[in-house]
Simulated assay, not measured.
Amino acid sequence: MRMIDQTAGYSSRQPGIVLVRLVTAGLKPLAALWKALGNRRVVNGLHDLTDSQLADIGLRRSDLYDAFGTSSFFQDPSSHLSLTARTRHSDHDMITKL
């Protein structure tokens, strides 16, 4: 087989598959951005909860401010909040077991 006959894994007989792969690859970053912005909107809604409601889910109001302060506009602050709540929960479990 000559070098000119070799391709990078794309066949000229399947142009539709190539197009689907290119479109899918281009949409993945947009989908991730859309998800991050949606999660950001939901986390922003947590500001409407009372302090006791936040405590029920393992958060403090300062955690909300920290999550928004440490993430840029396009980042997802919900991962920071879930990590904070899990850490606080595991710390609380360790203290109560002593």
Results as ranks from 00 to 15, higher is better:
residue 4 I to Y: 01
residue 39 N to V: 01
residue 1 M to K: 00
residue 51 D to G: 08
residue 71 S to G: 02
residue 88 R to E: 12
residue 89 H to E: 12
residue 22 L to R: 09
residue 48 D to W: 09
residue 9 G to R: 00
residue 62 S to G: 14
residue 70 T to L: 14
residue 40 R to M: 07
residue 77 P to Q: 01
residue 96 T to C: 06
residue 31 A to Y: 09
residue 50 T to N: 10
residue 77 P to V: 00
residue 73 F to H: 12
residue 35 K to C: 04
residue 73 F to L: 07
residue 97 K to R: 13
residue 18 V to L: 12
residue 68 F to W: 03
residue 67 A to N: 04
residue 24 T to K: 12
residue 86 R to N: 15
residue 10 Y to R: 07
residue 30 L to G: 08
residue 50 T to W: 08
residue 12 S to G: 06
residue 97 K to P: 05
residue 37 L to F: 06
residue 73 F to K: 03
residue 59 L to M: 03
residue 89 H to R: 12
residue 91 D to K: 13
residue 18 V to W: 05
residue 55 A to Y: 00
residue 9 G to L: 05
residue 39 N to M: 13
residue 33 L to K: 08
residue 58 G to Q: 07
residue 40 R to V: 11
residue 67 A to R: 01
residue 31 A to C: 09
residue 28 K to Y: 06
residue 97 K to C: 15
residue 73 F to Y: 15
residue 95 I to N: 04
residue 19 L to R: 04
residue 14 Q to F: 05
residue 24 T to G: 06
residue 76 D to N: 15
residue 98 L to G: 09
residue 78 S to Y: 01
residue 76 D to C: 02
residue 42 V to T: 06
residue 26 G to V: 00
residue 28 K to D: 03
residue 44 N to D: 14
residue 80 H to A: 11
residue 68 F to A: 09
residue 53 Q to T: 01
residue 37 L to A: 14
residue 46 L to P: 04
residue 78 S to K: 08
residue 16 G to A: 13
residue 67 A to G: 10
residue 13 R to T: 15
residue 81 L to R: 08
residue 76 D to L: 02
residue 49 L to D: 01
residue 79 S to M: 05
residue 98 L to C: 05
residue 43 V to I: 15
residue 96 T to D: 12
residue 66 D to M: 08
residue 49 L to V: 03
residue 84 T to F: 00
residue 57 I to E: 07
residue 97 K to H: 14
residue 34 W to H: 12
residue 38 G to Q: 13
residue 30 L to W: 10
residue 51 D to R: 11
residue 28 K to R: 09
residue 81 L to D: 13
residue 21 R to V: 00
residue 83 L to W: 04
residue 33 L to T: 09
residue 66 D to L: 07
residue 65 Y to M: 05
residue 33 L to I: 10
residue 33 L to F: 11
residue 97 K to F: 15
residue 73 F to D: 01
residue 87 T to F: 04
residue 68 F to S: 11
residue 1 M to T: 00
residue 13 R to W: 13
residue 3 M to N: 08
residue 94 M to R: 14
residue 76 D to F: 11
residue 49 L to Y: 10
residue 4 I to F: 01
residue 36 A to K: 00
residue 93 D to G: 12
residue 76 D to I: 02
residue 80 H to T: 14
residue 79 S to D: 07
residue 83 L to M: 11
residue 92 H to E: 15
residue 20 V to M: 11
residue 44 N to F: 10
residue 98 L to S: 09
residue 37 L to I: 05
residue 57 I to H: 08
residue 87 T to H: 10
